[in-house]
Design a protein around this nucleic acid. Structure first.
Lengths: 333, 333
DNA sequence: GTGAAAGCGCTAACAA
DNA sequence: TTGTTAGCGCTTTCAC
């Protein structure tokens, strides 16, 4: 049923009906009697305005595009959930695009979403290239997790540097000196932040000789291979700091294969906490990113942008979740 | 830039431009020269048609609504990924709704998506109520995972009955007799299928005295509490069959707290495989649902429906993934 | 207080 | 081979 049909049935103009249904009755001083009649009839017919027509007329879709590299990664799945819930609260819906970590798909997603005239964009970019992120015409964009120093797009992210400092500090306090770091995707801001935090802390503690960064992406395979490499070193590290959850899984797998006990023989801290970390053997000590906060902050930032403001970028504090994958070094002389 | 502006710049009618850009040049025998000019100019201006206007005119949005109870559950996250990728291949985008396992939100999502005139709906329903799933006007709907016997909506699901039979059979073959089953949400088809499979297999093997079904939803808490109850029984089961991944996490937690060794003292099989099952201690034996296949089948079914066909419902075969959480019973007399 | 009519940007029936 | 025009369903300016 259309607005027009409804109006005909009521013997009124579409204007009046529309005004009542969009809550502008006061503004146009429509009589209560008329308004009530309209509402009653609308209810009877379960009338719902055609959003497409509405969008076209209003030049606004109440739709936000959400672009993420891999929704099957729990990190992003959690993010997607918070974002969806927050946006819905504010009357927006989300068009989801999974880029499968392929820049080409990211580019494509972006133009598809622009064609659909989304009101704004929430992007967890892949991060290798990023100039395609700025589109014509410009619409509000908030980057999540990864961002770019040479572009002034708004972003919300974890304070990766701080997180890495906390993790490294903790290991050092437990007496570790030979601490290796297995990194994720090179040249992406989170990775660089984490690596810097690690390096800085090592340096500050006079452990520059032990600084060892290895690895190249956020994958199980990378964690696995990198660990194997570390184990083949003349001086095997007593602790590993792994820069995301997937890498940690690879590390665990390799360690298990080599029958090395954690934390007895090798200690491990992971960036990115996950619910199942509790159930691993041993339960993994981790730096937890505040996912819900990130999601909420991203949405809030986007709304500021939509309202024409200039919200500040946000670096949210990570949490330290101590479990039992780190042992003091003096246990093993 | 709009089609009209483009046409003006080319000194042509919008009709011609539209025809070329929608690939109907042959049909209307538009001269190559004209067509080339149009394409060239469109490229120069990076013209992309306004999809909102297009949708309104065509009465079709090329958008599919995806409604799921919890995208942060890896089961649904995986599903969402396959679905998104498959739909995109076929030129559709997805509007995502997370219902947080609340029927009210499911209802709301449905009407929001109807208002946006999605071409079809993919729903993993919560399953407690379901009459709101049939909307006016009717549009193609495919249910995923859960479905309803008394409604003839198309569905794609795992053969839950078969999966449960395989799991139970395996335990029995290993010599277990006292096998408990921790179930998920009551009165939902997957749960009922799994429970029936368990019961049937126990019955067929003359173990009716040992049939024990406990639990009430798909949560970690339920797995945890139910396990505690089982452990307080005079005759503690030698094996537990847990009906989903979340429940299994709760089971593991409770078992760990009680310092019961798996599989030494209690064996465990889980419905729903997850990547991290490999890393648990011990690695969990599981019944794996073919997520990618389910996603692909759901999309394929939806397209059949969109084309006016009557595709058959699908029950896909689960896979048995043997790891090391089940021990033969004679190890423990 | 209410309504007529224009127009958002596109496609397609009909005309030429 | 190309163009004119109506209309998808809604909101809103302007008029009464």
């Amino acid at each position: 049923m259309t607005l027009k049909e409804l109006a005909e049935e009521l013997n009124m103009s579409t204007t009046t009906v529309s005004r009542v249904l969009t809550g502008q009755e006061k503004k146009y001083r429509i009589s209560d009697k008329t308004a009530d009649k309209v509402r009653a009839m609308a209810k009877v017919h379960q009338f719902a305005p055609n959003q497409i027509a509405r969008n076209l007329r209003l030049q606004k879709t109440n739709t936000i595009g959400l672009i993420i590299p891999d929704i099957s990664n729990p990190f992003f799945a959690n993010l997607a959930r918070t974002v969806e819930v927050e946006l819905r609260k504010r009357g927006k819906m989300v068009l989801l695009c999974d880029t499968k970590d392929e820049t080409e798909l990211e580019r494509e997603s972006l133009s598809l979403l622009m064609g659909r005239k989304v009101d704004g964009l929430l992007i967890a970019p892949i991060g290798k290239e990023h100039h395609h992120l700025i589109q014509q015409p410009e619409i509000p964009i908030v980057l999540i997790d990864r961002y770019f120093e040479d572009q002034d797009l708004s972003f919300v992210t974890t304070d990766n540097f701080l997180g890495a400092c906390i993790a490294t500090d903790f290991l050092i306090e437990k007496g570790h000196r030979n601490i290796a770091c297995i990194q994720g995707l090179l040249k992406t801001t989170p990775n660089e932040g984490r690596v810097s935090g690690y390096k800085k802390t090592m340096l500050d503690n006079g452990l520059s000789d032990y600084i060892k960064v290895i690895g190249e992406d956020y994958s199980i395979a990378n964690g696995y291979e990198s660990t194997k490499t570390l184990l083949s070193l003349p001086e095997v590290p007593t602790a590993i700091f792994s820069l995301n959850n997937q890498i940690s899984m690879g590390v665990m797998k390799a360690l298990k294969e080599h029958r090395l006990e954690v934390p007895g023989e090798v200690s491990l801290i992971s960036f990115d906490d996950q619910p199942y970390f509790d159930l691993l053997s041993p339960p993994l000590t981790a730096i937890k990113q505040p996912m819900s906060e990130i999601g909420r902050a991203a949405v809030a930032t986007l709304f500021e942008l939509l309202e024409g403001n200039h919200p500040p970028n946000q670096m949210l504090k990570p949490l330290f979740v101590e479990r039992s994958s780190v042992a003091p070094i003096y246990q093993k002389p």
